[in-house]
């Protein structure tokens, strides 16, 4: 293999230069012979790099292997059954999956506006001296363990948000059906709901969406910004016409990544919800579920079929998040290479 084919390989003579005169300079092709040490070195690195494939492959393989029993025992009704009664061979993800997605969607609805305006704030409005500190703070928010979010959501947020939830349910419940609470106006009707879990999860994806969007926003070209100002734009006009269009791809990718994270969020959700196995139509009512919370709350059941059923559910979660995350990765990478700007 020629060394020049690889960007970081040993420097292999001059890069291809255009001919500068009558006697055309053809760059010599120099191959650097790899020493035995190099060969071993590259081999080791290659193994480490491929280990990522190995790990992800193994995860998929073992989830399939361990989940087969359960899938075989219930067949396709795994996708259509709402209940989760493993002893009666009657279980499926028809309720758990959409309920989990609902939590993720609620989280996104709350998180995206806050995250985007925070990202714009950090990249455009914050005093320059504060920016680094704010970036660190957002990163810190991402580093706070999910169990802490769960503690905070359960003990701090839930008692304080109930008044708001009741207000929503009482005043908008009749107009907007999914905000209705049908279980009567007592305190526990409003706790442990899909909505509250969604609020807590939204706090956990705010830093992810914020930091990725901030990154693309801050890459908006300086010349175009100044051009907008020179045409008499206000700052918001500049942001709206330069920064936001430039960052659109990255923002979409960031939102997808946030969605993937919200789907996989386990502990905070499991701490807050009281699990149920009906498809949820009223988000403010007590009772919610998600695949990850189901696994966290049920893995203690000792019989093999229960575990196998959880593995099958985990496989669905794994496949979904992998899909969303890889798609998000593609979107983000395309936006980084500047594909979304016309230049």
């Amino acid at each position: 293999m020629t060394a020049a084919a690889e960007p970081a390989a040993p420097y292999a003579g001059a890069p291809g230069q255009p001919d500068r005169g009558p006697d055309k300079d053809v760059p010599r092709i120099i191959t650097a012979p790899a020493t035995p040490g190099d060969r071993v070195f590259r081999g080791v690195l290659r193994i480490a790099g491929y280990s990522v494939f190995a790990i992800m492959g193994l995860i998929a393989f073992f989830l399939i292997l361990r989940g087969t029993d359960a899938l075989r025992s219930v067949g396709w009704s795994f996708l259509t059954e709402e209940k989760w009664q493993t002893a009666a061979h009657n279980f499926g993800i028809a309720a758990v999956l959409p309920n989990g997605l609902l939590i993720a969607v609620i989280a996104l609805v709350i998180a995206v506006p806050v995250a985007l305006s925070t990202a714009i704030f950090i990249s455009e409005y914050a005093p320059v001296r504060l920016r680094a500190a704010l970036v660190s703070l957002v990163d810190l928010m991402a580093a706070i363990p999910s169990i802490i979010y769960g503690l905070w959501g359960l003990f701090f947020l839930q008692p304080r948000i109930i008044g708001f939830v009741r207000w929503l349910a009482n005043h908008f419940g009749d107009a907007i059906p999914f905000l209705k609470v049908r279980t009567g106006d007592i305190g526990t009707s409003y706790t442990s709901s899909t909505f509250i879990a969604g609020v807590v999860v939204s706090l956990m994806i705010i830093p992810i969406v914020t930091s990725l969007s901030r990154e693309v926003f801050s890459q908006a070209p300086q010349g175009e910004r100044e051009g907008a100002y020179a045409l008499g734009s206000t700052r918001w006009g500049m942001v709206r016409t330069v920064v936001l269009p430039f960052g659109r791809g990255g923002v979409i990718g960031a939102i997808m990544l946030g969605f993937g994270r919200a789907m996989g969020e386990t502990i905070a959700v499991a701490l807050i919800i009281s699990p149920n196995f009906k498809t949820i139509t009223h988000i403010l009512e007590n009772g919610a579920n998600s695949i990850s919370a189901l696994i966290a709350l049920r893995f203690g059941e000792s019989d093999a079929l229960s575990l196998s059923a959880l593995m099958a559910a985990g496989l669905v979660l794994f496949a979904l998040t992998l899909l969303v995350n890889v798609a998000a990765g593609f979107v983000i990478n395309r936006s980084r290479s500047g594909a979304s700007t016309a230049d």
Binding site: E6, P7, A8, A9, R42, L45, R46, G49, Y50, V52, F53, I55, M56, I59, L63, S146, L257, G260, R261, M263, G264, E265, T266, S292, I295, A296, F299, L310, M311, G314, L317, F318, T321, L322, N325, V326, G329, F330, N333
Partner: peptide
């Protein structure tokens, strides 16, 4: 080292960053 496989590895690493932690446990 790079090469053809660097990009797929990178994409997969990014996807793995967001692997649900419960799946790792499972």
């Amino acid at each position: 080292v790079g090469g053809r496989m660097a990009r797929p590895v990178r994409t997969l690493v990014e996807a793995m960053t967001a692997l649900p932690s419960i799946v790792a446990g499972l």
